[in-house]
Amino acid sequence: MSLTISDVERVAKLARLELSASEGAATVTQLNGILAFVEQLQAVDTTGIEPMTHAVELVQRLRPDFVGETDHRAAFQAIAPETELGLYLVPKVIE
């Protein structure tokens, strides 16, 4: 499997990374290098092997339903790029 420039552009779009025309070609080469490297995995027969998602074989611990958080809006919004009336602002979203 080898990526084309349009594959890379699709992935960059999914990942919301602006890709300049000059970066495109180099990125294709690098990503293909990495994917060729990980391609080794295909050589192993993994039939019947359960995928391993976590490093520990435990189950989820549950939290009691309790409101323990207080308002930190001022502190959180002190480091925000743009806020008004307690809201985070972004360019107009068209639904």
């Binding site: 499997m1 990526l3 594959d7 890379v8 992935v11 960059a12 999914l14 990942a15 990374l17 990125t27 990503l31 990495i34 994917l35 990980v38 995995l41 295909q42 192993v44 993994t46 092997i49 359960e50 995928p51 391993m52 998602t53």
Partner: peptide, 26 residues
Amino acid sequence: IMVGTYVLSHGYYDAYYLKAQKLRRL
């Protein structure tokens, strides 16, 4: 980010991500 996005994307998940998770168990 690009590699990660690609290996999780539609049509490649099984070949890459799931495969790697199986290798992880081995």
